[in-house]
């Protein structure tokens, strides 16, 4: 073990999620990081967080939406498409987030709790739900592409333009 980044910490949903023994356990991501252009993006506790992986420095954090009538806030690992982060949240919203400043570029409401990561291809955002629906959001922006599988592709190593040495 090289080092830890204690300042990059948050509430763990690990036990709760895996104890549910739901199908989502089969693609449990927890707080797994997406690496994009030299920065790590991950959900820590109730925030989406961007950090510098070289030193653990927090670059920005974005509070997640709370489930209606509850203080619970949770989201999946962000997907990356067209230079944007795409986030599905337990509160049922899908967010497009700017990776540099953490600003929300667009948001879409669904009528579902969203537990599983979105895939993004050909300008469309697809997300499963805790109910009967697969939601497809047609953004009209074909640049939103390149995340056609859970955890990016068959390697399930979510690294985009990662540098060999950091």
């Amino acid at each position: 073990m090289l080092q830890t980044y204690p300042e990059l910490s948050g509430k763990s949903h690990f036990e709760q999620l895996l104890a549910s023994y739901h199908v989502y356990c089969m693609h449990h991501q927890g707080s797994q990081a997406l690496h994009y252009k030299g920065f790590n993006y991950q959900v820590l506790g109730e925030n989406l967080v961007c950090s510098d992986p070289r030193n653990g420095k927090l670059m920005w954090k974005l509070p997640l939406p709370q489930v209606a009538g509850s203080k619970k806030a949770l989201a999946t690992m962000p997907s990356l498409a067209g230079d944007e982060l795409v986030l599905t949240t337990l509160a049922g919203e899908v967010w497009r987030v700017h990776p540099i400043n953490g600003k929300i570029l667009d948001r879409y409401a669904t009528a579902s709790k969203l537990w599983s990561q979105a895939v993004v291809a050909n300008g469309n955002i697809y997300t499963g739900s805790n109910g009967k629906n697969l939601h497809c959001i047609q953004t009209g922006n074909p640049a939103l592409d390149g995340w056609g599988q859970w955890s990016m592709n068959g390697t399930h190593n979510p690294v985009v333009m990662g540098l060999p040495d950091i």
């Binding site: 199908v23 599983s116 990561q117 805790n130 047609q138």
Partner: peptide, 21 residues
């Protein structure tokens, strides 16, 4: 839907992340 479309899977209970090729 307002933003695209929903695929309703009758009697389903929890829909996983899909894959697109």
């Amino acid at each position: 839907t307002k933003n695209g479309f929903d695929i309703n899977l009758s009697n389903a209970n929890g829909v996983s992340t899909p894959g697109v090729v």
